[in-house]
């Protein structure tokens, strides 16, 4: 039973990871990262059920907090850079090359 959830979580994680790698818009990339975190949550909760203790659920709570903090910080950064250069494309951020 729990296998399905794990597969789903794995899929979500893979989609997120792939998105980070191939998408160009910073916000989309960022959303993909959030998707990955949520996939983690799903895995935690599933495992929590599988192994029969509550630790996994507690961890999911903490992950949510961290994800929230990350959202706040991340959006702040992206919005700032967006305001400065009017583009949120990762490709446009290319000053740091040698």
């Amino acid at each position: 039973m729990t296998t399905h959830y794990l597969v789903l979580s794995g899929l979500l994680f893979a989609i997120g990871a792939l998105g980070v790698l191939i998408r160009r818009n910073a916000i989309v990339v960022f959303m993909c990262v959030e998707l990955m975190l949520n996939a983690c949550n799903l895995a935690f909760v599933t495992f929590s059920r599988q192994v029969g203790n509550l630790e996994g659920q507690v961890i999911a709570f903490f992950v949510m907090v961290v994800a929230a903090a990350e959202v706040v910080v991340g959006l702040a950064i992206i919005v700032t850079i967006f305001r400065t250069r009017r583009s949120a494309s990762v490709d446009d951020a290319n000053l740091l090359k040698y």
């Binding site: 794990l6 979580s9 980070v20 990262v33 990955m36 935690f44 495992f47 992206i78 850079i81 740091l96």
Partner: peptide, 28 residues
């Protein structure tokens, strides 16, 4: 500077997602 910040953030968040998924697997 802002670009560095964004790159650091995106990659850092990406890697911490990996870290977290790893924790999930170990927990499992």
């Amino acid at each position: 500077s802002q670009e560095a910040s964004m790159k650091y953030f995106l990659l850092g968040a990406f890697s911490s997602a990996f870290f977290l998924y790893g924790i999930a697997m170990i927990y499992g």
